[in-house]
């Protein structure tokens, strides 16, 4: 079962991702509401998630910075960047994001990317 860490500052979005992913058979191992919390959760996790779903505009630390730090901790981590900021795609990929999905997206598209990066 593919495990996921969800990072987004919108509580409702986090809840929706979590519920839909669980319905589709994914294991949500954690959630975080900003980049710093994401790094803490990532560090604390005994087993690292297969995929991190990362938002960009968040308080304290943004998604690009958090992606960069997670990739420093684990250079083979798969990170799917999801953001309403299409202009940040290049920066996100340079930071180490494997995939980029502009918001709003359908969960089918996210799941397709998750399957692709989990292969």
């Amino acid at each position: 079962m593919t495990s996921v860490l969800i990072v987004d500052d919108e509580l409702f979005i986090v809840e929706l991702y979590r519920d839909i992913l669980q319905l589709r058979g994914y294991k949500v191992v954690g959630t975080a509401f900003d980049g710093e919390e994401a790094i803490r959760r990532y560090n604390d996790a005994f087993e690292k998630p297969d995929v991190v779903i990362m938002d960009h505009r968040m308080p304290v630390m943004n998604g690009v910075e958090a992606t960069r730090e997670i990739m420093r901790l684990n250079p083979i981590q798969k990170i799917i960047f999801v953001s309403a900021d299409v202009l940040v795609e290049k920066e996100a990929r340079e930071a180490g994001a494997t995939e980029f999905l502009p918001k709003p997206f359908r969960m089918d598209d996210l799941i397709e990317r998750m399957q692709k990066v989990s292969l």
Partner: peptide, 10 residues
């Protein structure tokens, strides 16, 4: 766009 994401996912 974030609001649209919540509506779409809901």
């Amino acid at each position: 766009l974030n609001l649209n994401q919540t509506v779409l996912s809901s």
